[in-house]
């Protein structure tokens, strides 16, 4: 079976307050679903790896083939849990270790 290549994205949240992990992932999923539909969303194999609430930096895993779609969906987020929010992608890497070296 072909191995699925993954990519890890470090994302910085810019908003007042700190959302819960569930709120964060809900908004990312809904953005992906809004732009690429449920089939597209299922192909992303997205998962939240970590979320540092002190500096509001999250690490999100996705499949390489849907990386561009996930990145686009992240850039389109304008609010989390009813509060205005912006999500910036700080770095993208193939391993978590290399990701933390990048920013």
């Amino acid at each position: 079976m072909k191995r699925v290549k993954r990519r890890y994205l470090a994302v910085q949240l810019e908003m007042d307050g700190v959302p819960s992990e569930k709120e964060l992932m809900d908004v990312i999923w809904s953005s992906v679903v809004k732009f690429y539909g449920e089939v597209g969303a299922s192909l992303t194999r997205m998962a939240l790896i970590s979320f540092d609430t002190s500096c509001k930096i999250a690490v999100v895993r996705t499949s390489l083939e849907m990386l561009d779609s996930v990145r686009t969906s992240l850039a389109c987020i304008t609010g989390i849990a009813g509060k205005g929010a912006v999500v910036h992608v700080l770095a993208v890497s193939g391993t978590i270790k290399a990701l933390f070296k990048k920013f």
């Binding site: 732009f35 686009t72 912006v86």
Partner: peptide, 15 residues
């Protein structure tokens, strides 16, 4: 709030 990083802005054009 409508400002994005350059690569994020580029990624929007994939749409």
């Amino acid at each position: 709030r409508f400002m994005r990083m350059p690569r994020d802005m580029a990624s929007l054009s994939y749409l």
